[in-house]
Simulated scan of single mutants.
Amino acid sequence: MQGNSQQQAYDRGTNIFSPDGRLYQVEYAREAVKRGSPTVGVRTGEGVVFVTGGRLRSPLQVAESIEKIHKADDHVGIASAGHVADARQLVDVARRQAQVERLRFEEPASIEALTKEVTGYIQEYTQAGGARPFGAALLLGGVDPDGTPRLFETDPSGTPYEWAAVAIGGDSAEIQDYLEENYDEGLDSDGGLELALRALASVNDGTLDAEGMSAAVVNGDGYRQLSGDELHTTIDDHGLAETEADE
């Protein structure tokens, strides 16, 4: 009984370490990310591909209103998992910093510098009283000013990680296993999109429903988000579409 009351005491503060060095509120924020729809990022030789999963809560819901992939700048995209409202706040931080970099240095911000600015903002909410950590994780990716594709993940603790391919959100461990087995450094944008789709399908009986999903590609030509029709067609072309029997 005493042990439970002690843990509850550490639960109440975001800036109080438990005796074993844990910040429970940060760990709970990570759990919020795991309960979100899965999101996949793949770095290719040309740029970065993002694909997010998810389903509509109702046939009356407008699919375009679900925003989980965002344009941060002409050369940077951001995909999220976890609480969408928290993610939108962090996307705004990235967008403002991208514009600051352009005004200050008259050139696009590097993906790494942009990621560290966002993770610095996230980290402040793990040590401030009266605030809670962000219940969202982001994938920031794009093409650096020198033409190098980069892909980073942000964690609710404020830690950045760089990846060649990564999954966040629900079923991320299983999807990551698929990516590790099938990733190829020589992928182009179309190959990266196919890999991301197949990775998401691997935890859904090998099929996907494009409704509620989003996809975007960032390469030397800039940021481009696929339309709903394009995503439907791509999923169908790769034989991943759900059939009536599946449904």
Rank of each mutant, 00 (worst) to 15 (best):
M1Q: 13
N4E: 15
Q8M: 15
A9H: 15
A9V: 02
Y10C: 08
Y10R: 06
R12L: 14
G13D: 13
I16R: 15
G21R: 03
G21M: 07
R22C: 00
E27R: 06
E27N: 04
Y28T: 02
A32V: 00
V33T: 09
K34H: 09
G36A: 04
R43D: 00
T44L: 05
G47M: 05
G47T: 04
V48Q: 09
V49E: 13
T52N: 10
T52I: 03
P59E: 08
Q61K: 09
E64W: 06
A72T: 03
A72W: 02
G77M: 08
A81L: 04
G82M: 05
H83C: 02
A85R: 10
A87I: 06
L90T: 03
D92V: 11
A94D: 01
R95P: 01
Q99C: 00
E101F: 14
L103E: 05
R104F: 03
S110H: 11
L114H: 06
T115F: 04
E117F: 06
I122M: 14
I122F: 13
Y125Q: 08
Y125R: 11
T126Q: 14
Q127F: 06
Q127M: 12
A128K: 12
R132T: 00
A136G: 01
L138P: 02
G141C: 01
G142L: 06
R150Q: 13
R150K: 14
F152Q: 08
T154V: 02
D155Q: 09
D155H: 12
D155Y: 14
P156S: 09
E162G: 08
A164H: 14
I168Y: 10
D171I: 00
S172K: 12
I175S: 07
L179F: 03
L179T: 05
E180F: 05
Y183C: 06
Y183T: 02
L195S: 00
R198K: 15
A199M: 07
L200Q: 11
A201C: 08
S202T: 03
D205M: 10
D205E: 15
L208Q: 01
M213F: 08
S214A: 13
A216K: 05
V217G: 09
V218A: 04
V218M: 07
V218E: 03
G222M: 10
Y223Q: 09
Y223E: 06
Y223A: 09
G228V: 00
D229V: 02
E230I: 03
L231I: 02
L231A: 05
H232T: 14
D236H: 13
D236S: 15
D237L: 04
L240Y: 10
A241N: 06
T243C: 09
A245I: 02
A245P: 00
A245Q: 15
E247V: 03
